[in-house]
Structures are given as structure tokens and as C-alpha cells.
Design a binder for these strands. Structure first.
Lengths: 335, 335
DNA sequence: TTGTAGGCGTTATCAA
DNA sequence: TTGATAACGCCTACAA
């Protein structure tokens, strides 16, 4: 059950443990023919190194950072909660994580955060900008592994992306929007910022499906609410003054403002939002929101840590390791 | 940097390593005041156990079985896939699992399977019957921990239930059924067997919400398709001959037959089914099915293994450890 | 009820 | 170039 060990390799190769170790971790100082003998023995025995034992002996501790925006989005709160819930298990696995909050949409602040990092790997949820790419390149050059979280940064050279397929998220929102709306009508789409890749991808997916299959609906120009409750509320009220709204797709945060605004509208528009937070959960329960599309943040944290651990150990993470699922919540299946 | 260890705890508590270990893993055989002293020392030192070291040292291997029906439900295939995906992590945690397939709805076969078990704990997905209860009692008496999977067996004395809230599943199906149906109409509900607890609970939840909020719809008497494709197909065709069908809720399996039948109907009824399998995935993609309510089998496997491990170690599993989430899939978010 | 001693698989420090 | 040998942190017979 417990497979061949270095002892077995040593025995087959007729050398000592130390020599096997030297070859295995190519530290040099071993004659060519002995190297060959050891390598052959590894193949012959089918030896696979036991990472746990290696880390135990090496007293390795994984230091990971999460660079994520703060704000009233509730996202950081959920992230903190998820990390707290995983804290114990993470500690047991020798990983220490630190959250570095940044001001939302503030590139300067994000850069500052990335400069002050001291860790083996970092999961970043930051803007897509050339300066950020440079910063990430510097981190990579310094041997820090970088994972993009929730919003991908494909042009940054990051090691991996952990998050949902945001185009799919937008398409899913559209599918339910189209089916929930009985007739035709105006659809209001509110993003936080179209410069945020997750938001623009969701918007893209949403528009694609609405135009493709539910073209009885009229898509109003996409608004930007900066993930701010007051701004979001204002956008809804302003829009509703000019014309009836049949549906609202809130792509980013600021749902507290959305609840206030939707409460004043009659008839109530079909309202679809992202992230299952205190606010959206309650709004779902009372019928103010009709659907919540949630990326399971706990799963995201677990996936991110797993990927960072693999990367830190120079292991290629499984292809789908970073893909996290979208959960759909109606008033009947809130958890 | 490398944190406190058992030695530190032992020193502070003025006891030996073995005693600390006994307290840490509550194995008993330690006087109350020493227990207190050790616990205080743990708090004082901030000790966190090193899982890698623990697993390395522990030669214990957990042997678990899954007794589940085979058949055209695709469930066993999904279960196998889920286990395969978890294999690596499970092996690292010293657990070996074996799948024992049984013929669906065949109580004799289920009993035979339960008799031939050799393991520390078993997760069973079997019928609710007195003979089964006896068999489970025998297992429990023999020291094998028993967990009911997907369908609960409350009267069997099983140690725990791992599965979804099936009433909630039915309620969720009704919520989407009500919203997807534009007007009013006849709703056909097809269970596998009303003697199966998961099926009857789903039906109950579905009926509750339909009557409560979508009473424009007419619920036809619930049919039983024995999870058999041909039977299910026949039921749909027979029903459609007499009256138009606006919606179909398929509570159990046999979705292959449902696909065939629905394909012949015009207009196509809103069709909501359970379990994301090859068949339902494809039907979702082509528009034959409108919604799939899926119990995440991978999550179920992980939860079941966790609960079985706790039970085997005589630890009371956390209250919500067995509750698994319901995922909702439309054509746009199939994974 | 408590303690001692040895081992899990790998790494690292000495000598030889 | 090589090889003993002692950690790493925890678990567990076996004693006492």
C-alpha cells in the first residue's frame, strides 16, 4: 500500500540513502555511473516521493497571500469567512495565508500591495492594466507564483487562473432572464466597471444570449455603478423615470442599493444578481431578487490554495483545478 | 517559525508525549485534571497539529464501501467518476474505498451485498424495507458504521445520513416550473417509486410549492415509472393522448425514455429532471430538458467519506456534515 | 492511569 | 564521492 521508498531505491541501486537523495534532488557530487544506477533503480521500483514526508523533514511552510479589493461588496467578507472556515485545515497542512485588501478599482493601491508582498505565491483579484502586468512580471521573476482570482489576467503571464467562466455566468443570467420575463421589455444591465474583466465578460455573455434567443427584449446601454450601492440605486431610479424596466441584471456589487430601488418599482422587474451575500439572500427570500448566481467562494479559496501549493512545489496543477462552479439560487434553495 | 509541537505542549502540561496524544485524539484513559492541564497547555502554546506528520506516522488505513444500485440511471458511473477524481486525495489520507453495485429495487440483492461486506464503514443507497433494517442492524452490531446515502433510512438506526434535502429539491423544481410556464396547464409528475423516500419527499415539496404559489397549474396524479426508460416513455405518451401537457417533473431516473417521449410532443412541455448525466446533459443542450436539479455527487462522496472517517474514529460528525448542496443547471451552465 | 522507545519517509549534517 | 546518522512531528505498541 505505502509504495516503494528511498530505502528500496537505495537497496536496488546498492548505494546509501544520502546518495539517492543527492540524485533525486540533483545536488551534484555523484559520479555519472552511480547517477545512472540510481535513476534506473527509481524506474525499476516505481518510486514516487512522498511530499508530506519531504515537507516534514524540510520543515516547509507555505506562505500565500490573497490580494483582493475591500469595500461594501461583501466579497472580502465572504472571502474572509471562507478562509476562516478553512483556517484550521490549512494550518494543519502547513499553509499560512494572509489577506491584503486594496481599494477597489484603485490601480495605484493594487500596485503598492503587490510590491509589499512576502510569500511563496499570491492570488490576485486586480484590474487589468499594463502597470499591473509589469508588477506581476516582477513577482514572477522573483520566484513568486501568481494566480489570478475571479477575474483573469490572461496577458499578465500569471501561472494560472482560478475562478468561474464569467462568459458562462452572463449567458446563464440571460437564459433565466429570458425565461422569467413573460413578455417583452427593457432590460437594464449594471456593471461595476467595464474595465474589470469579470464584469465585461459577464456582460458579453449576457448580451449574446439575449440577442440570440430572447430578442423580444430591448437591452438598454450598460450602466456602470462602481460597485457602489448609492450609484446603483441612482442608476435604477433614473432609468425607471424614463421608461418601464422589465428586467435588471446586476453584474457587480452594490446590491443594497438595488434592493432599495427595486422595492419602489411597480411592476417589479425580474432581478438577477451575482454573489450570495447577506443582502442578496434576504432579497431572494422576500422576492425582491429572482435569482442569484453565485461563485462558491469557499470552493474558490480551496482551489486557489491547491493550485498555489502545486505551483510552489513545481507541480503542474490539473487542467481543471482552477475552474470553479457557478451555483444558482432561487428562493427555494437558499443555503 | 515552525510553531509549537506536542513536545512543547507536553512540557508545559508536565506530562509525556503519549498523554498529550491521548488527550489530543481523545482516546480516554486520562484523568480529568490531566486532561484539563493538557488542554490548557494546548491553548497556551497555540499548538496546531501537523497533518502531514500525523498521516505519515499513522499506518491506519480506512476501508470504506459504497453499496449503490447499478442500472441505466448513470448514478454509479457518476459515483465512480467522483471517486476516481478524489482517489489521490483519499489515498493521501489513508482511505481505500470499494464500490459494491446492486440491482436496482432488488432487496434480495441488496441484502446479499450487505452480508459480504468487509470494511470499517459503509455508505448505502438501498430500499427502505424491514429486511434491510435487520441487515443494517447486524452490521452496526458487528462494529461497522453505516451511513445512508441520497435516500435516508431513518428507521434503520444508521449512524448518519448523507444527501440532499429532498423536500427542498422538490420545492426548487416547482419554483422553476411555475416561472417557466407562461400560462396555466397540466403538470405531469413521474416518480420512480413512491416507496423510495427520496422520491416521495421530492414529490411532497413539489406539490407544496405548486399549490401555494402556482395554482393556475393542474397537478395530474403522480405516476410511477420504476426508474425505467420504457415505462417512463409510455407514461408520457399515454398521458399526452388524453390532454395537453404543459410541464413534466421527472423525480427519478429513466430520462432516456423521457427524451424520446418529449421529442414527439408539440408544444414541448417544460421539462425538469434530476441528476446531471450524459443523457440529461445532452437533452439540456438540445433544449429537450429545461432544467436539471443535480445533487453534487462529488461533494456527496467527500461528505460521506468525511462522515465515515469521523464515525470510524468515534467522533461525532458536525451537524451539517451530511447535507449536500443542490446544483441547478440550465443549458447555459452545464459543466 | 501514565510513560518509554521506536518508526513513518525524507532531508541534512557530519565524517570518512 | 560516498555513507552513517540524527532530526522533522506525530503515533502506538509495550511497559510500568
Amino acid at each position: 500500500m505505502s509504495g516503494p521508498t528511498v530505502r528500496d531505491v537505495a537497496e536496488v541501486a546498492q548505494v546509501s540513502l544520502a546518495t539517492v537523495d543527492r540524485v533525486l534532488n540533483n545536488r551534484g557530487g555523484v559520479s555519472a555511473k552511480v547517477v545512472e544506477r540510481v535513476k534506473a533503480a527509481v524506474v525499476q521500483t516505481g518510486y514516487v516521493r512522498n511530499l508530506a514526508a519531504a515537507n516534514l523533514s524540510r520543515r516547509r511552510i507555505y506562505r500565500f497571500c490573497f490580494v483582493v479589493p475591500t469595500g461594501d461588496t461583501g466579497f472580502v467578507a465572504l472571502l474572509h469567512a471562507a478562509l476562516a472556515q478553512e483556517q484550521h485545515r490549512l494550518r494543519e497542512e502547513q499553509v499560512v495565508v494572509q489577506i491584503v485588501p486594496t481599494r477597489p478599482f484603485d490601480v495605484e493601491d493594487q500596485i503598492a500591495a503587490l510590491r509589499n508582498l512576502d510569500c511563496d505565491a499570491v492570488a490576485v483579484m486586480v484590474s487589468e492594466a499594463p502597470e499591473i502586468n509589469e508588477e506581476i512580471a516582477a513577482l514572477l521573476a522573483a520566484g513568486v507564483r501568481v494566480v489570478s482570482l475571479v477575474a483573469d489576467l490572461p496577458s499578465s503571464g500569471r501561472d494560472a487562473y482560478v475562478g468561474p467562466d464569467n462568459v458562462m455566468a452572463g449567458r446563464t443570467a440571460a437564459e433565466f432572464m429570458g425565461r422569467f420575463i413573460k413578455d417583452t421589455g427593457n432590460i437594464l444591465m449594471i456593471a461595476g466597471s467595464l474595465a474589470a474583466r469579470d464584469h465585461s465578460e459577464r456582460l458579453l455573455g449576457f448580451q449574446m444570449v439575449m440577442q440570440e434567443r430572447y430578442d423580444g427584449c430591448t437591452l438598454l446601454p450598460a450602466a456602470q455603478g462602481a460597485d457602489d450601492a448609492a450609484r446603483v440605486e441612482q442608476i435604477v431610479m433614473d432609468t425607471a423615470r424614463d421608461r418601464p424596466i422589465a428586467g435588471i441584471y446586476a453584474i457587480g456589487a452594490g446590491n443594497r442599493g438595488l434592493v432599495r430601488a427595486v422595492g419602489t418599482l411597480n411592476p417589479k422587474p425580474v432581478t438577477i444578481v451575482h454573489e450570495l451575500t447577506q443582502v442578496s439572500r434576504e432579497a431572494l427570500r422576500t422576492g425582491t431578487f429572482d435569482l442569484v448566481i453565485d461563485q462558491d467562494i469557499r470552493a474558490g479559496v480551496i482551489a486557489a490554495v491547491g493550485v498555489m501549493r502545486d505551483l510552489t512545489d513545481s507541480i503542474t496543477p490539473p487542467a481543471d483545478a482552477g475552474r470553479i462552479k457557478l451555483n444558482i439560487y432561487s428562493r427555494e434553495n437558499i443555503q
